Amino acid sequence: MTAAQVHKGLEGVIVDTTSTSLVDGEAGALYYRGYPIETLVQYRFAEVLHLIVFGELPDARRLGEVEEYLWQAGRLPAEIAATLRALARNGAHPMATLQAIAPLLALEPPLQRIGRSDAEEEGLIIAARLPAAIAQIHSSLEDHAPHAYPASRRYGERYLQLLTGHAPSADAIDAFETLQILQLDHGFNASTFTARVVTSTLAPTPSALSAAMGALYGPLHGAADQGALEMALEVGEPQHARAFVANCLATGRKVLGMGHREYRVVDPRAKILKALAERSAVEFSHRRLLNTLSAVETAFVEQTSSKKRPLRANMEFYKGVLCLSLGIAKEYFTATFAASRAFGWVAHIVEQRQDNRIIRPSALYIGPAPRQPEEDIGHEKAQSQR
Rank of each mutant, 00 (worst) to 15 (best):
H260M: 07
A215T: 10
A127Y: 02
L57D: 02
R129Y: 03
V15W: 09
K308P: 11
H93C: 04
A223L: 09
E234P: 00
T336D: 02
R261P: 14
M315E: 03
E120A: 06
R113G: 09
E120R: 04
F54Q: 10
F284P: 03
G34S: 03
A241S: 14
G252H: 09
L76C: 06
H144G: 07
M231G: 11
A119M: 12
V53Q: 11
R62G: 09
R279Q: 15
R360S: 15
I272W: 01
L182S: 07
H166C: 13
V6T: 13
H240R: 15
M258F: 03
A102K: 02
N356D: 13
L111K: 13
P131W: 01
L233M: 14
T194F: 02
P361A: 12
L124T: 07
A148M: 12
R196C: 00
L289P: 12
T18R: 04
S362F: 14
I80R: 07
L22P: 00
D376L: 14
H260W: 05
A145Q: 14
I37W: 00
R44H: 04
V197L: 08
E380L: 15
P77Q: 07
A46S: 14
A211E: 00
A81G: 08
P268A: 13
Y43N: 05
E351P: 06
A145V: 11
S19M: 05
Q112F: 12
H144A: 10
F300H: 05
Y69S: 06
A338S: 11
A128P: 01
K330S: 15
R312C: 06
R33W: 10
G259D: 06
L22I: 03
D267Q: 04
L293G: 13
A82R: 14
H7F: 09
A102S: 15
G25I: 02
E157R: 01
K8D: 11
A133I: 05
P206E: 12
V15A: 12
A100F: 09
H7K: 07
D267R: 00
A281D: 09
N314A: 07
P219K: 04
A208W: 02
G64M: 10
A228N: 08
P361C: 14
L40R: 01
L202C: 14
L57Y: 05
R89L: 15
A270N: 09
